[in-house]
């Protein structure tokens, strides 16, 4: 079912919100670039904390793709999140994000009509929670989500 349009501020920017149309079991996909991979103290590769932070813009949240919208559009989610450029990605479920005090919202753009945002506090504790909640969706070989 299509999602209702999100609330906007006077500048037309999407306001942080928790969208009731995004179900608890719905997948929330976060793309991970090779640029966001670092080495830990043992030389093993893992995702940098930068991948689990909000962007710095207005009403800033963490960009995601809403899996249910991709499926409803008749597209393959793994193909969708690796197009037009290949990146890895991790997956959460909306309900578990909400249980960790995040808001999961809808923020479509002309380039990405399945785009969503995760809003909340992105302190160390929350970043660790995000890592623990994430599973590889499109795996970057040899890269761990959680630090050893």
């Amino acid at each position: 079912m299509p999602l209702t349009l999100p609330p906007l501020d006077p500048n037309g920017q999407v306001l942080p919100h928790d969208h009731e149309g995004i179900g608890s079991d719905d997948g929330v996909i976060r793309r991970i670039s090779e640029q966001q991979i670092v080495q830990d103290k043992s030389g093993n590769r893992r995702i940098s904390s930068m991948a689990f932070k909000a962007s710095g813009g207005d009403n800033s949240g963490m960009s995601v793709d809403l899996e249910s919208l991709i499926v409803e559009a008749g597209k393959d989610p793994r193909l969708y999140v690796t197009t037009p450029r290949w990146t890895g990605s991790v997956r959460f479920t909306a309900g578990k994000l909400r249980a960790a005090k995040f808001l999961v919202g809808y923020d479509p753009s002309p380039e990405n009509p399945c785009h969503g945002e995760v809003w909340g506090a992105f302190g160390r504790l929350q970043q660790r929670q995000l890592r623990n909640l994430a599973t590889w969706f499109v795996e970057i070989p040899g890269v761990a989500i959680v630090a050893e």
Binding site: Q36, S48, S49
Partner: peptide, 27 residues
């Protein structure tokens, strides 16, 4: 140090060593 880009032109400088992890996020 390792350097990781942010989405809005920011960057983070990182060290991950036995003694400490240090991250400097230049917004």
């Amino acid at each position: 140090p390792q350097i990781v880009p942010g989405a809005t032109g920011d960057l983070q400088i990182e060290w991950h060593m036995d003694q400490a992890d240090i991250e400097i996020h230049v917004l």
